[in-house]
């Protein structure tokens, strides 16, 4: 997915952007810019997971034109910031694999629930596959969303009593209420 079409911010071609700035104010601005860039990039490429050791393979963290890479420590700092705003979460204890949510789980929950309400699918059983890969959802924003992330969204909805996730053996489904 190297050819992701997004509007690269001017900072992307600005070498100091790729190393964390010591000055607090500059740094917070820098991190904010990084956050938007990362979310934008993952949204455009429809990716949800990020392995921090593979991060430099992604163009977003590696601008070959100016020969700058974001190092792992800086990336971790930014990811932690993203986690604070609900836009990312590590999937393992070593914080090697991260999930990026360009909508927070709650936002996603609302989007999906609104969709379900609109098509009148409350009170019926749907599979995760048909919600993320089905023909009916091709124009929805959550089309092609990672199924693990999708289940997390549904679990969040479940705590609100809006749905119930069904996971038996290899079956993944959900019933909305």
């Amino acid at each position: 997915m190297a050819d992701v079409n997004i509007d690269w911010p001017w900072q992307y071609s600005f070498p100091p952007f790729f190393s964390l700035q010591p000055h607090t104010e500059t740094r917070s601005k820098q991190i904010a810019a990084w956050k938007t860039l990362i979310l934008e990039y993952f949204k455009a490429s429809k990716q949800s997971t990020l392995d921090i050791h593979e991060a430099t393979n992604l163009p977003v963290f590696n601008n070959t034109a100016i020969n700058r890479k974001l190092n792992t420590a800086a990336l971790l700092t930014i990811l932690n910031e993203l986690q604070n705003s609900g836009n990312a979460a590590p999937t393992d204890k070593q914080k090697n694999i991260w999930e990026i949510y360009w909508h927070t789980l709650e936002e996603w929950g609302n989007i999906i629930y609104t969709y379900i309400m609109n098509i009148g699918a409350t009170n019926s059983v749907l599979t995760i596959y048909e919600l993320t890969q089905g023909d009916d959802v091709q124009n929805e924003e959550f089309y092609g969303l990672d199924s693990n992330v999708f289940i997390k969204i549904l679990k969040a909805l479940e705590t609100q009593g809006k749905c119930e996730v069904m996971l038996f053996d290899d079956q993944q489904g959900v019933k909305f209420f």
Partner: peptide, 23 residues
């Protein structure tokens, strides 16, 4: 509190299975 009682019935499971098969 209500959630302790699952609202998923056996039929729902059957439907899920069918839909899974369809997928």
């Amino acid at each position: 509190k209500k959630k302790q009682v699952s609202r998923i019935t056996e039929q729902d499971k059957a439907v899920l299975q069918l839909k899974q098969q369809r997928d």
